[in-house]
Amino acid sequence: MNFTLKIWRQRSHSEPGQMVRYDVDGVTPGMSFLEMMDLLNEQLTVGGEEPVAFDSDCREGICGMCSMVINGQAHGPARATTTCQLYMRQFEDGEEISVEPWRAAAFPLLRDLVVDRSAFDRIMQAGGYISVHSGPKPEPNSIPIENALAEEALDAACCIGCGACVAACPNGAAMLYTAAKVSHLGILPQGQPERYTRVTRMVAQMEHEGFGSCRNYAECEAACPKEISIKFIGRMNRDYLTATLRRPIKRDGPMDSQ
């Protein structure tokens, strides 16, 4: 199979970028999109050109590193699929394919198709944890958890933090990511003590990073390779409203003397 690729090339954040046309041939239908990119890079290297920089790691759809907007769709046209699990048989021979990086103010571009997603890490650091003793492993059945709750928490915990939700959102919002991370802890009994401080802090960090707001388009849900539902956004909204409208409990710092 042969393809015409239009790829965003940009040497660094400070330099202007542009779409550059490349022809790639010798692609087989069984190649993944990233393998096709590898093939292109080999051809570029042989021709003495700079290869296209892109992120990838596990190449089995679980690490969340690959990040390409293919023909205007984050992770390409297939639903519930990361770029690495997208195969070239999805495309027609001779097709023109456009490849762009995630576009968001909070994801500064580093080079070509690579963006810096550490904004997500900072959202996690703001509250994506539970405070427990790190002693010996607890007995598994000491805290009973209803199966439906455990399943729901796991649905949220499926998030691999790839950022497709931000890339697909017309507003560049990170609501689905933050909601998934807030919910997978907030649903479980172990996450209850910090449930409301967690949502307040993570949302504050999300806003601080410069993500947009939610207009309930559900484009994020359609782009999510793990099919995380926007029901978690509704759940986060409810938790956030409860947290801000409730009297804040001040637990930080020393107690005042009388």
Binding site: M19, A105, N171, G210, G212, E219
Partner: peptide
């Protein structure tokens, strides 16, 4: 205010027209 914030959240637009898979015209034209 939210619309301004949303515009700032994506300073560089996509070159390929972004596909809309879920958003209804009603939602997009609010």
């Amino acid at each position: 205010q939210l619309a301004k914030q949303n515009r700032d959240a994506r300073p560089v637009a996509y070159i390929h027209k972004p596909a809309r898979r879920e958003a209804t015209p009603s939602a997009r034209w609010m």
